[in-house]
Design a protein around this nucleic acid. Structure first.
Length: 479
RNA sequence: GGCCCUGUCGUCUAGUGGACUAGGACACCGGCCCUUCAAGCCGGAGACACGGGUUCGAAUCCCGUCAGGGUCACCA
């Protein structure tokens, strides 16, 4: 039994999004679970749209998710190169071989001609299938085209038959290949198209299992046919269901945060994201949800992957994030993530690690996104900003309560003990026959300019006596 | 339009002919706690798309209908 080899083969035409990340993750899980190899291959044969910077972003984001590959463009391997743009001469030989054997043919049709043809067929409500007008071109006609300056593309000649294969997720699938149009395998500029490139590379890289999105289901038949023409054994295929937007349409930018980069900027934790997307279309036998990656690997089973699409629900992912922050991550891990996040969002808090760590410890139970920590950071680092409404509210407060609050805070000394702050404030209220809520509200407003936020004793604790008094005196002058 | 795939609470799912009064999680609603917003704890509401079969028995098997998605590029 040869070793299992899988791959993730993105084209660098955009950011790594949730769907791609999940496909990569399932390949990674399958490889790790079966002690196989996971390969990253860049499919950059579309020179118009491919950009090196996208490749960099994809690699960076996969790394952020801790999805690691054994071979790839950045680290090399025995089956390289791992960028299709660096393998161009390989494909041409195989295309020539197919032509020589009569399994492929030159096509001199221009893109415009093909487009007209397609529209015509569509208009007649017929499937847009290439009519093979270039299949039996005479030498004379070919020369004529060449003289016109036309450069031919190479089309694969689809043999008509009933074709079926066993999909790892959907089971037995079949189609009548009469419905499959002869695909172009080499563009007129000599660059392979997707359907040809994957076949050649998957074979040469000895890929054993192709795990990819459902949108490739129909491509599989074309690819299977090419394997057959080349007398190669095809890999196993597993088509995982797509991830849909809440409105059940294809997930895209307009549906909010769908790229890994955006999620990171919002304050998601990599482990939480991985855990969540692993559960999109798959669940372990025992229905556990929160699992560290090694447990996911251990429990992962491709046959347990569902065959119907899943809707992406960022709210549930937020809960996972909350759970990881509150219960799983070490404070130092959170601190590290916070630092990266500050850099990413171009924020700078001049707070010592020690202080940040204390904020983390005291706040992590109520935090959903890492960015939520910044709320308390802001309070500590910056003076409050008062809106007119808040100023108004402060003016309407009983001046006596003002005095009581200021005096009490001045007399108090145990600012380094949250419990003592808490009980002290309670006592102050009691002694003066006030509802605790009223003085809490006032102090909160004075210190932060807001109605909501972290627990008040915590705020006072982090501000300390000096800063607390300073802020109160400052606002007192205005009101 | 052809072809292909799919259909369990709003969402992710458990379920593989009897253990289903259909279980869990997020979200939602209510309560407790309480100095705000939360978090936490407790409770509640909420689904087998529809119609036919097969069977003693169907969420589970078959057929049809409807609905959703994918795909039909010199994009991947």
């Amino acid at each position: 039994m040869s070793i299992i080899r899988v791959r993730f083969a993105p084209s660098p035409t955009g950011y790594l999004h949730i769907g791609g990340a999940r496909t990569a993750l399932f390949n990674y899980l399958f490889a790790r679970k079966n002690n196989g190899k996971f390969i990253l291959r860049i499919e950059d044969t579309d020179f118009e749209r491919s950009k090196r910077e996208y490749e960099d972003v994809i690699i960076r984001d996969l790394k952020w998710l801790n999805i690691e590959w054994d071979e790839g463009p950045d680290i090399g391997g025995d089956y390289g190169p791992y960028r299709q743009s660096e393998r161009l001469e390989i494909y041409k030989d195989y295309a020539d071989k197919l032509i020589k054997e009569g399994k492929a043919y030159y096509c001199y049709c221009t893109e415009e001609e093909l487009e007209i043809q397609r529209q015509l067929q569509l208009k007649e409500k017929k499937p847009p299938i290439y009519d093979r007008r270039c299949l039996n071109l005479t030498t004379k006609k070919k020369q004529e085209y060449e003289l016109q300056g036309r450069k031919p593309s190479v089309r694969f000649l689809v043999p008509y038959k009933q074709l079926e294969f066993q999909d790892l997720i959907h089971g037995r699938l079949s189609i009548d290949t009469k419905l499959v149009s002869d695909p172009i395998i080499l563009k007129s500029n000599g660059v392979p198209t997707y359907n040809f490139g994957v076949v050649i590379d998957d074979h040469l890289m000895e890929i054993t299992h192709v795990i990819r999105g459902d949108e490739h289901l129909d491509n599989t038949y074309r690819q299977l046919l090419i394997y057959e023409a080349l007398s190669w054994n095809p890999p196993f295929y597993g088509h995982i269901p797509m991830i849909l937007a809440p409105d059940r349409s294809k997930l895209s930018k307009r549906h909010g945060a769908t790229s890994v980069e955006e999620l990171r900027k919002l304050g998601f934790i990599n482990k939480a994201v991985v855990n969540y997307i692993a559960l999109l279309g798959w669940s372990p036998k025992d229905n556990t949800e929160i699992m560290p990656i090694n447990e996911i690997i251990e429990k992962f089973d491709l046959s347990g992957v569902l065959d119907h699409p899943a809707v992406y629900d960022i709210e549930k992912m937020k809960y996972f994030n909350h759970y990881y922050i509150a219960n799983i991550l070490q404070n130092t891990e959170i601190l590290q993530a916070l630092k990266e996040l500050e850099k990413l969002n171009e924020l700078e808090y001049n707070l010592q690690d020690n202080l940040k760590l204390r904020v983390i410890e005291l706040e992590k139970n109520r935090i959903y996104l890492l960015t939520d920590f910044f709320e308390l950071f802001d309070i500590i680092q910056y003076d409050p900003i008062f809106s007119d409404d808040i100023l108004n509210e402060l003016n309407n407060f009983d001046k006596n309560i003002f005095e009581i609050v200021i005096n009490s805070l001045n007399e108090f000394d145990n600012y380094d003990d949250i419990e003592k702050i808490k009980s002290y404030l309670k006592d102050v209220a009691k002694k003066n026959n006030l509802k605790p809520g009223s003085i809490y509200k006032l102090i909160r407003l004075l210190l932060t300019g807001k109605h909501e936020g972290p627990e008040l004793p915590k705020i006072i604790y982090f501000l300390g006596k000096k800063e607390t008094i300073k802020r109160i005196n400052k606002i007192k002058e205005i009101v």
